[in-house]
């Protein structure tokens, strides 16, 4: 933490960045995103197990972009998000400083996206055992049971769009649900509206989701959205050998055409 605070202070003092997007203390035990703009406030930065929000969400937010060049305190999923956003031309090399604090108090400053790629290639992405257990349980269901499971989960959706707003890859200024000529997705939070929304959200993230889990954590009614994302990640990996967030290049299965693709309907 000391390393992080020292680095943040130095970056702000040197004018190398205008804001450090990091974590600070929140309500009770919660940690929350803070935006440190003055070097003397660098000591408000914390980093520990509570710091889970994927702060890369803020890299594309207009209010944060207006503050000037940022440094971002990045967890593993945030590093992947940085690469994916770079691949999708939302951020550019040199436009930000990426700081990855380790659990042991160390700090890595990534100078290039290539360095992040190298780091991620050797990093393990542990899966929460409780989430894996739920995944195994749902996978073992018959299609009919699984359909009922999802109808039950989705019936609780209130269409607050916290999942979308919390997702760093949902940066579209105008979401499909806000397009109403024609209205692709029903606005009301009834059974069909909820189902179409949640399926559409998952499909728009297929091949792009870096599995940070913020959609599930943001959901006020506790819908396990990570299950949908993870199944799609697995399917894309096994069918197309691609995984989002591993390199700073656009190459995702569902929207990139390669001349040597087997499917030729697009020609």
């Amino acid at each position: 933490m000391d390393e992080l605070r020292k680095k943040a202070r130095a970056l702000l003092e040197a004018g190398e960045v205008r804001v450090v997007i990091g974590y600070g203390g929140g309500t009770g035990d919660r940690a929350r995103a803070i935006f440190v703009r003055e070097p003397e406030r660098a000591d408000e930065l914390i980093f520990d197990g509570r710091c889970r929000q994927n702060l890369a969400i803020y890299l594309t937010r207009r209010e944060v972009k207006e503050l000037g060049k940022p440094a971002i305190v990045a967890t593993l999923p945030a590093l992947k998000t940085v690469l994916q956003l770079a691949g999708e031309f939302q951020i550019a090399e040199g436009g930000l400083v990426v700081l990855a604090p380790g659990a042991d108090g160390s700090l890595i400053e990534f100078k290039t996206f290539a360095d992040i790629e190298k780091y991620l290639a050797g990093a393990a992405s542990p899966i929460d055992p409780a989430e894996q257990a739920e995944m195994d349980r749902v996978r073992a269901m018959s299609p009919d049971e699984r359909w009922k499971y999802w109808l039950g989960q989705i019936s609780r959706c209130i269409k607050c769009y916290a999942c979308r707003q919390a997702c760093p890859m949902c940066y579209c200024p105008r979401c499909t649900v806000e397009c109403n000529q024609p209205q692709w997705i029903p606005v009301p939070s009834h059974e069909l509206g909820n189902l179409e929304w949640n399926v559409m959200r998952a499909m728009h993230l297929a091949g792009r989701c870096v599995d940070c889990g913020d959609c599930s954590r943001a959901c006020p009614v506790g819908i396990p959205l990570y299950l949908l994302n993870r199944v799609l990640i697995g399917d894309i990996e096994s069918n197309f050998h691609q995984r989002a967030g591993m390199k700073a290049e656009v190459d995702y299965a569902l929207s990139t055409f390669h001349p040597d693709d087997r499917e030729n309907f697009i020609r």
């Binding site: 929350r32 995103a33 803070i34 935006f35 969400i57 803020y58 209010e63 944060v64 209130i158 269409k159 607050c160 769009y161 916290a162 979308r164 707003q165 919390a166 029903p186 606005v187 009301p188 943001a218 006020p220």
Partner: peptide, 24 residues
């Protein structure tokens, strides 16, 4: 600055009354 612009606060609120009208 950290607000994500979702509707969770309004939808769990017992007094928020804004609504939208949709024809289907």
């Amino acid at each position: 600055l950290r607000c994500l612009g979702c509707g969770a606060c309004a939808y769990v609120c017992p007094t928020c009354a804004c609504f939208d009208i949709q024809d289907e």
